[in-house]
Design a protein around this nucleic acid. Sequence first.
RNA 1: CGGGGCGUAGCGCAGUUUGGCUAGCGCGUUGGACUGGGGGUCCAAAGGUCGGAGGUUCAAGUCCUCUCGCCCCGACCA
Length: 607
Amino acid sequence: MRYSRMLIPTVKEVPADAEIPSHQLMIRAGLMRKLASGTYTYLPLGFRCLQKVINIVRQEMNKAGAQEILMPSVQPIELWQQTGRDVAYGQTMAKFTDRHGRQNVLAPTAEEVVTSVAANEINSYKQLPINLYQISFKFRDEFRPRFGVLRSREFIMKDAYSFHADQKSLDETYKVMYDTYCRIFKRCGLDYVIVEAEAGEMGGSGSHQFTIPCPSGEDIIVYTEDGSYAANIEKASVDPLPKEKSDAKIPPIQEVHTPNVGSIEAVCSFLKTQPKDMIKTLIYTVPGVISESKKSIGKELAKHSGDKVTVGEPIAYQEVAVLVRGDHDVNSEKFTLIMGGEHAELADEQTIKEVTNAKVGFAGPIGLADKVDKVIIDHAVTAMAVGVAGANKTDYHVRNVVPGRDFPLEGQNVIVTDIRNAVEGDTYRGKKLLFKHGIEVGQVFKLGTKYSSKIGCKFLDENGQEKNCTMGCYGIGINRIIASAIEAGNDKDGIIFPISIAPFEVIITPLGVESEITQVAEKIYEQLNRAGIECLWDDRDVRGGVKFKDADLLGIPVRITIGKKSVAEGNIEIKLRTEPNSQKVSIEQAADKTCELVNSLREKLNP
RNA sequence: CGGGGCGUAGCGCAGUUUGGCUAGCGCGUUGGACUGGGGGUCCAAAGGUCGGAGGUUCAAGUCCUCUCGCCCCGACCA
């Protein structure tokens, strides 16, 4: 391809609205342009990168026995009501009402659709297992799109769904997908880390995330130095803390007046204490029918039956108190797991007042077990010798609170468990936990029968018994692969692409417009094209400096420089983007030598 | 959604505090000359509803009201 014929609008200045390196460089190198918040146009160079990634993903998926299909982006909301995910996904799901008044969903993912396809077409164990995938746009009406393409409102995802007769078959395919993902990310030139993950909204029994460590990542990876453990912070387990020794006899609890001092920080500065010496009490509401005393008001849940679109109806909910140390945060995934998959929400002001008889900010553990349906106590709280807590009385806190003495650590509705996020200093199985940020580029899930049971995806087994299909699903964020490759590969001059996903493998930069230089350039360009190497020929009539700057910015792995002086000696120069210096090669050997180099770069990324 | 910030030429910004002449600068773009190994120099030129609407005023980029958009922080975002 001739540079002068391509739309490659590089810019010198960093765009004002881009913060992280990948976003800045994707704009600067002319890979893409923003249309609106969270939506981007891929320009020719950026689209080439996308297609390279897509090709790799497609090749590996096909090799793994998956079959490519294409499902609609516009899906009827009724399908989502069947699984309850119209509510679970909430506002993140983009919807529109069509001219007939029907509500439609812009696909955020496709479990429902693919399961309904399978429900219609799969009848027998003889058809199983089967793995179907697509590469298509997904839509998420994000709270806050950010970081360029890393969190956008629409993106390209490869999503695969496997159907099985039993758990063993799922486990096998899960392993195949896991290995396939390793191959895909290796081929894309990414240094990935696999972490244990929580299945979250997807449901199911097991999950791994493939992440690219880098400071701009939104996920936090928790791991041990020896590599024996790595998990997303949403999932990461922590050892219980050792019980603090309480040598002195602790005086009875003492109420203190703390007017308008609600937050942990405020209480600490008011009482001259530290967050780690506080017991934080949070009141949540969790859907679910419980003891007769509880009412069903306020909250609304969609109706999942009938042809009517989502209509709110009152539901029962339970009130759950969670106790964590003042410097710890509740881990919502662990919470959800403890509540049997039910999604917890922080209670509203009204509910908190009813439960604690106090304004928000003064909830405490004493006497609470009788007022709520459940008390969940993090085991770091049980390890405290003494602490400060809310008094369940507006503008009051209590000192000298001793867990076990002043509030129960056991009982019918008391659970002591690990319910907080890991923090610096925590251990797991005795090993110190370390933290780093990462970008999630892929995730694999064992779904079980969560979707098949709700949508009626059944088959007859070899005994003629009707069973729900066991499912797995496997996603890859195509756009994120590009962005994280750039996050991982860049320097002050621009992008450093892995050769497998670079828009071109080689760039030819002739310096000068003299005919002997152009002739050499054209000859090498044609030789490389014939050899199947993707080559960008910078035929622009601009000064050398401009060409060098652009070549570096674009991140093309190999550069061939054709200058007057070296041509006079019968040479050209070959330089790697990753190396500071070039090597001289004779004009005759230029193409062969380049092929060799390109092949060795390709080779390095072979799994 | 809560908090903060920003909208002035394609891009990056100054000018707004304290209203006042023809709205500037750098980069980029177009034409020309020189130049030609790391974003070169000179000359000439094009390019603006100052985000939008309304208001105050003799006079609004500047003050007031409303509104739209974008960015950052936060709120559990497969």
